[in-house]
Design a binder for these strands. Structure first.
Lengths: 143, 143
DNA sequence: AATTAATTTTGGAATCATTCTAAATAGTGC
DNA sequence: GCACTATTTAGAATGATTCCAAAATTAATT
């Protein structure tokens, strides 16, 4: 598994900007997230990482995910108090959690809809972020 | 602290409907939530409950909150992986979490806005619930 | 009111995701 | 390659929540 040239450049730049070093582990975790964009948990990422890098530890996976999130390369996705999932899609979008198939699907929202949500806030309130999570059935029969 | 007659009737009916008994503990926890609608965590509710009912246990608080949620009298509110908070406002609404003051504020959303959010889903998807959490500054200086 | 049966409460142990810690290892600039 | 600093590692610690089995309470029946 290999990071594409533009993604590699993105990673280099993001780490440099925040004074962090590029390590094999960080690169591998980032590549895994980009390769299969299914919103895995830290445990799932750890299991996948171990295939090519058996010596990696779970603590490192958590650490890499934290650094990648801080540097703005990943987003955390939470559903209730389930384990945190990770998402490399940085555009403003919502998440749909299908309780049947367990899949998490990105839902694009129009600028206009976001603007309306912002406009629903009382005077004086300002939001840095809106987290929108749907849950229901996605109609696919994959399990 | 006393449950109003209509709220008492609501509690009775909801418990009966799902075959649960009315207990002092359940009534007390429900009354606490209605009295101060500040989205407390289980720990905070436990601390408040102990004032009038020192023998109550944390396990019972969790159990009551679960039952009251299941019977549809309370909603759980989560922000990332912070401890779950509880809310007796059953109308469709969003939550605003002020990182400065720590306050959680209910935000009303129009039917129309909810409908638009539902309409943003791909064909075949159906949502039971949409969870909307803003975070930012609420502009109050209470701390 | 006593008896029984079923549910609830209780305190403590267990669980699970995540964070912390301190020693070992790997990057970076010279 | 050397020294300096950041990172990784394994395992212990944490914190919210759930589980457990015994004691207490409630509801139904006599």
């Amino acid at each position: 598994m290999q990071l594409s040239v533009p993604h590699k450049a993105l990673l280099d730049k993001a780490l440099e900007r925040s004074g962090q070093r590029l390590t094999r582990q960080r690169e591998h975790i980032f590549a895994l997230l980009l390769e299969k964009r299914d919103h895995p948990t830290a445990d799932e990422i750890y299991a996948r990482a171990c295939i090519e890098m058996p010596s990696i530890s779970l603590a490192t996976v958590y650490n890499c995910l934290e650094i990648l999130t801080e540097t703005g390369l990943l987003r955390q996705v939470n559903f209730e108090r389930e384990p945190t999932r990770y998402c490399p899609n940085l555009t403003q979008h919502a998440h749909f959690y299908c309780r049947e198939s367990g899949q998490v699907i990105d839902i694009d929202l129009s600028e206009q809809l976001i603007a309306q949500l912002m406009a629903a806030l009382p005077k004086g309130f300002s939001a840095n972020h809106i987290d929108i999570a749907y849950d229901g059935q996605c109609g696919s029969d994959r399990h």
